[in-house]
Simulated assay, not measured.
Amino acid sequence: MSVLVLNTGSSTVKYELIDVETGERQAKGLVERIGEEEGLLTHDNGSVKDRFADHEAALKAILQVLGDISPEAVGHRVVHGGERFREAVVVDEEVIAAVERLAPLAPLHNPVNVAGIRVAQRAFPGVPQVAVFDTAFHHTLPPHASTYAVPREWQVRRFGFHGTSCAYVAERASAMLGRGLSQTNLIVLHLGNGASATAIRAGRSADTSMGLTPMEGLVMGTRSGDVDPGLAGYLARTRGIDADEALTRDSGLLALAGVSDMRAVRQRADDGDQDARLAREVYCHRIRKYVGAYYAVLGRVDAIVFTGGVGEHDSGVRAMSMAGLDRLGITLDPARNDEPSTGERAVSAPDGEVAVLVIPTDEEWEIARQTVTAIRNMPAR
């Protein structure tokens, strides 16, 4: 089955056409800077600069470069599935309405995810559309991990995100370790512009750092991660600041170092910028703290898994984050860690009790796989 995967973000659309039976990637690309004066569409090995006024314009441009390619299904990344969506589902009007109702929980993502679905429906009438939810993997969180200590009538809980990435790398990690997923305990560190830590027990999410929204947990590109809940009221009283906006768009690495991209932070730190050095130290300290906490949650850890752009490519972040964890059986091999490889690999010491793995995530493949499963599980009509 040929599946067109659409990963529609707040200012980007990433797409890939995948033959799920053979694994062949038939086409892939990315539209960036949607809504800006000069956007960029990169398709396979070529690129086109243009203005993409909105997501519909970007998706129409993607369909144009795909030409006569006709997928048998379209799989959509949808960020927030709330309580209702615990697995991928074939899209109908009821599903779309439910995703729209969840928009307050992911205001930057769910509305554009719906826009992607609408455009694809018009472009491929009669072709099944499937929604694959970032939050679905974490529906196994036990009540003691998903419950906030707040009044029940607020009807809020912890959901978690990056679930599609966690599902993919957990499968790959268990294969690298040579054991079944049901026998494997992992701590997955998805480190990119958004960042999260997840404790996985026997293939199921046991705890995760993001909560009701993607703001909680680790330090991120522009998001603060964990802060004192009293900060919002303090900022409102003393500075008239909208904390939701400030903690989402103006915080994280951007607030500490002046730039949100870890590559730029690293360069500034290497050049002697003290703010950038502190930013990396804060970032890695938070990761190390979560690793220790999730080790306690799981009781036994078989591997720490680094994934995402920063996790896969920044050996310094990996080294700083794992420093001082030798007593827990977590020891990096400096030579392996610094090796400029881009594939799946172990970077732990050969005699380390806990493996430290680097696994490039492949959310598009996981979305395609779940899309096919959802279609095959549709009840017969």
Rank of each mutant, 00 (worst) to 15 (best):
242 D>R: 05
265 V>W: 02
64 Q>P: 09
236 A>F: 11
225 G>I: 06
375 I>D: 00
237 R>Y: 09
294 Y>L: 09
65 V>F: 09
106 A>Q: 12
238 T>W: 05
289 K>I: 07
236 A>I: 02
219 V>Y: 04
37 E>S: 03
268 R>H: 12
20 V>P: 00
282 V>R: 07
181 L>T: 05
342 T>L: 07
206 A>Y: 12
351 D>T: 13
226 D>V: 04
245 E>Q: 11
233 G>K: 07
69 I>T: 00
135 T>H: 15
95 V>G: 12
15 Y>N: 01
268 R>Q: 15
202 A>M: 13
297 V>R: 08
277 R>E: 06
23 G>D: 06
54 D>H: 08
7 N>E: 00
344 E>A: 04
68 D>P: 04
85 F>G: 13
320 M>R: 07
204 R>V: 06
77 R>W: 06
34 I>T: 06
81 G>N: 07
51 R>P: 02
199 A>R: 04
341 S>V: 13
128 P>H: 00
169 V>H: 10
291 V>W: 01
61 A>C: 09
377 N>T: 09
339 E>R: 15
177 L>W: 03
313 H>D: 08
73 A>F: 00
250 D>C: 02
381 R>M: 14
265 V>Q: 01
247 L>T: 11
79 V>W: 02
179 R>N: 01
120 A>W: 03
125 P>Q: 13
297 V>P: 13
21 E>V: 14
205 S>R: 10
300 R>Y: 13
312 E>W: 03
12 T>E: 01
162 H>A: 08
49 K>E: 04
157 R>T: 00
248 T>H: 11
35 G>H: 10
